[in-house]
Structures are given as structure tokens and as C-alpha cells.
Design a protein around this nucleic acid. Structure first.
Length: 274
DNA sequence: CCCGTGCCCTGGCGGC
DNA sequence: TGCCGCCAGGGCACGG
């Protein structure tokens, strides 16, 4: 599942390939991929737009066009491929035609991803972005504390909430909480302001290392454009059930937190008591 | 407002 | 080998 480092890797790769290319046409094969706008409007608006820059906020890919921003959320398994010839297969749902006879293809086996358009001066009013929290690189401990200290739900659940902090997903939250020595089921209201700083510091560290290694490649997230990273070799707990904790050698366990598979070391990550 | 649940999807896997 | 059922999960709608 692409999280901030994987999306950053996709941004860097796409930049090298499709900056300054002009879109002359787009095909949509699964209408639900296009969100917050009709497919017809999407096709009409995107025609003859040039891709001037590519960036991201949190996990949202942002393509700066002449008159719009194209926003793309890969969700679980979305990926982009850049082709020199036209390819249409079962899982390719959106195909952009460029004026040099090359193609950008959105591929998504589970069809969870979303693509939308925003007017140029309304980017951060777009529903994909308008309630987003700060990224770990920018958030302050006061801001994080203020957003979570009244919550009675597990700290893991709050850290996955993009409205609180942007960019973390299931893999990196497990890693961050392990490094911060916090049990993922700890009630958010019991997290101290010092622990907020610890969470932020470790999140920055983990994300930067993952970006430097091109992200994490596990399960289905293999061989996609820009994402065949090596950070999976650096994971301490995620996917490591029954393997020894790198700190204390006790076996890593897997539990469910709010429906999400969660890995932790019970010895290193103590649950705070009321 | 707060929080839990179900939904969208389909490949892959365990069980028989 | 084949089929069935279930699971994975990011974000959002909905309901208590």
C-alpha cells in the first residue's frame, strides 16, 4: 500500500518521464476511479493540458496542469505505468494519451484509487486535501497533542487518520510506534506531549529513510512504476509476526487494531494505564 | 461531535 | 485439482 515514501518515489520517477508532456486525450474504463467530477467533465477539462509539475501532499499525487490540478490517490494498489505504445489490459482503468505518441496508464487491481481535478486556485479546498493534517515533517508536538488528547481511541487509529497527520499508513505507523515504544492500543488521550514529539521525530526518521531507499515493497505492491524499494529490509515489526524483536528478542506479535493488522513487541511497547 | 461498522474491490490463500 | 469463503485495507458514508 503506497504511503508517503512510496508516493514520493512515484513523484520523482514520473517527473523524469512526463514533465512538459501535453495530454491530447484520456480514456476512462472504470468510471468510479474518477471522483468528485463527472467523467465527461474530466475528459473535457483535461484535453490539451500540459503537465508542468508533479508533487504530492501526504499520499495524494498532484499533477500541475495549465489550468487545473489533477489529484490522484493510489489507495491500496494503484500505480502508474508510462508506455511507448498503447497498452490496455484488465486492470488498466485510465489511459492518458500524450502528443508524442506515448501514454500514461493508471493500473489498479482493486479499483480503490481515485482521480479528480481541481481548479488552479482551489487546490487545498478540494475534498482530497481540504481537511488534511500537517505532514510529520511540519507538524508540531503542540498541534499533534491538541488534535489527539481528547480522543478515546487507539493511538494507532489516530495516526492513520489523515485529518490529524498526513502521510502515514499501516506499515509506517507500526514502525513509528515501535520506535517510540508505544503500544498501538494506547488511548490517544493518554499520550503525553513528550510522546507526541517522540512520534514526530521517529516518523520523520522512518519516512526519510524509506524515501532514501525508494519506499517499501511488500505483498502486492511490487514492480510498479517508481516503487520497487528496499525499505522492507529495514522493517522492525511490520510483517514480522513470530520473529524476534530486534531490541529484546521477544517474539513480535500480530493483533487487530480497529480492523487493521498490527505488529508490535509486547515487551518494548507498554500500554499506558489510566 | 465522537466513534464503530460496512462498503468499495479482487487476487490470493486456507480448508476440504 | 477445484471450488468456496474469507481476508487485506484507505477513506468515507452512515448511524447510534
Amino acid at each position: 500500500m503506497p504511503e508517503l515514501p512510496e508516493v514520493e518515489t512515484v513523484v520523482q520517477t514520473l517527473r523524469r518521464m512526463i514533465i512538459n508532456k501535453k495530454i491530447i486525450k484520456v480514456e476512462v474504463f472504470w468510471n468510479n476511479i474518477i471522483d468528485k467530477i463527472t467523467v465527461k467533465d474530466f475528459k473535457d477539462m483535461i484535453k490539451n493540458q500540459k503537465i508542468n509539475e508533479i508533487t504530492r501532499y501526504g499520499k495524494v499525487l498532484i499533477f500541475e496542469l495549465d489550468n487545473y490540478y489533477l489529484l490522484s490517490h493510489l489507495r491500496m494498489e494503484g500505480k502508474y505505468f508510462y508506455d511507448n505504445k498503447y497498452i490496455k489490459d484488465k486492470h488498466s482503468h485510465v489511459i492518458f494519451y500524450f502528443d508524442d505518441n506515448t501514454f500514461l496508464r493508471y493500473y489498479d487491481t482493486r479499483k480503490f484509487g481515485k482521480i479528480s481535478l481541481s481548479k488552479k486556485d482551489e487546490l487545498f479546498n478540494h475534498p482530497f486535501l481540504n481537511k488534511m493534517g500537517q505532514e510529520p515533517f511540519d507538524i508540531t508536538k503542540e498541534n499533534l497533542y491538541q488534535k489527539i488528547h481528547h480522543k478515546n481511541i487507539a493511538i494507532k487509529t489516530t495516526l492513520l487518520d489523515q485529518h490529524i497527520i498526513a502521510g502515514l499508513g499501516n506499515i509506517y505507523v507500526d514502525e513509528v510506534l515501535f520506535l517510540a515504544k508505544i503500544h498501538p492500543e494506547t488511548k490517544s488521550s493518554l499520550i503525553s506531549i513528550e510522546q507526541c514529539q517522540l512520534i514526530i521525530d521517529n516518523a520523520i526518521d522512518v519516512l526519510n529513510k524509506a524515501i532514501a531507499l525508494g519506499g517499501t515493497t511488500i505483498r502486492s505492491y511490487t514492480s510498479s512504476l517508481g516503487v520497487s524499494g528496499r525499505f522492507q529490509n529495514e522493517l522492525n515489526v511490520h510483517t514480522k509476526a513470530n520473529q524476534p524483536c530486534p531490541i529484546c528478542q521477544q517474539p513480535i506479535i500480530k493483533i487487530k487494531v480497529n480492523g487493521r493488522g498490527t505488529y508490535l513487541c509486547l515487551n518494548c511497547q507498554k500500554k499506558l494505564l489510566e
